[in-house]
Design a protein around this nucleic acid. Structure first.
Lengths: 196, 196
DNA sequence: GTCTATATGTTGATAGAC
DNA sequence: GTCTATCAACATATAGAC
């Protein structure tokens, strides 16, 4: 154990990068910012990530997405066998995480890296977030034996609704985000009309 | 008419800036990009917008939002008196526009400008997009006499669903975006269950 | 693993000629 | 209104010493 092949210095770099990229996005984070957070000079980063900023971004984004996927799956598993409870649990878990900034990732960060890397990452991101939700929705819609296509679309819309809550400026949130979550789930399950 | 106080050269600058900022976001557009589109040098921009890039961004974003507001209102007005038709018309109109990139605006562009300007713009953006939808939803929920609060939230979620469609990578769109629109409206009105 | 020194490019901005 | 010339600041990246 005295030789951690994935050195712990490198781990500190990745952790800092993941946090900063996640919070501010690709363009708004410089290598100097990341290095400063770790307490080293920015040129030292190249020892850990020889190919530079883009490689760093790709690596930490993949890490992050793996954590999203397993976190979501675990949350759903622990929520019991009722799909409505699973849906609530998934939404609550997602809102408890640092904001995804899904729209920014897709429309800003992906544009700033190479097209090939962007295309790969887009798929990774969608798979990580959609597939756990798709399994829940397949249960929810069991009596309708819905198409995989439709399940995917509904899962995407569920994510959009979650993301919308994060995008709201504070002025529009009188109550807590938990209340919004309930309104959101109600909308998703029953549509516009029933207040409850 | 021979003296257009708002000179037409300035107009060309604003038009180019509006398009580029809208497509790529604040950080990804340089003053040189905008100038090149107009066919002038980037230093000439300062004659039209003395305070520089941020002023330019604020001005064109406000313009854009005014057009969104009036476009939405007109669309809804022309859609007849049934709220469901109004909702469809609003959604179709929004999807026919150049993508809003709502999430990117809120999470990336707003972060790149001064906090005071960002706070003002956030409110402008939300008012422009939400208020026309709120009027439709107030009709839709008439029999429930819903709170203004709830109507605002639902309008925001409607926008999130629209935005979600723009954020989807092409791989996830087998059919047309029009089909997605129908699925989306169905979800918004009836919830998850009815296939239709 | 981290440093210093350095190369190279891009950005937003100003001054002043035409 | 547009230009040229110029600037300071900041970015990513490389080479090599310790």
């Amino acid at each position: 154990m005295q030789e951690s092949s994935k050195s712990e210095a490198r781990e500190r770099v990745l952790t800092a990068a993941e946090r900063l990229f996640g919070e501010r996005g690709y363009n708004a984070v410089s290598l100097r910012d990341i290095a400063a957070e770790v307490g080293i000079k920015h040129t030292s980063l190249y020892h850990h990530v020889p190919k530079g900023k883009e490689e760093l971004y790709i690596e930490v984004t993949e890490r992050r997405m793996e954590r999203y996927q397993s976190g979501l799956q675990t949350t759903i598993l622990l929520a019991g066998s009722l799909w409505l409870a699973q849906l609530h649990a998934a939404a609550r878990w997602l809102l408890a995480q640092p904001p995804m900034h899904f729209g920014r990732m897709m429309q800003s960060d992906m544009q700033a890296i190479s097209p090939e890397a962007a295309e790969r990452l887009r798929i990774v991101v969608y798979r990580a977030l959609l597939s756990p939700l798709e399994s829940v929705l397949t249960n929810a819609l069991a009596e309708q034996s819905p198409s995989k296509q439709r399940v995917s679309i509904l899962a995407g819309m569920f994510l959009s609704l979650i993301e919308g809550i994060s995008n709201l400026p504070d002025h529009f949130i009188r109550g807590s985000r938990d209340e919004l979550l309930n309104v959101m789930i109600d909308l998703f399950v029953n549509g516009i009309k029933p207040q409850k």
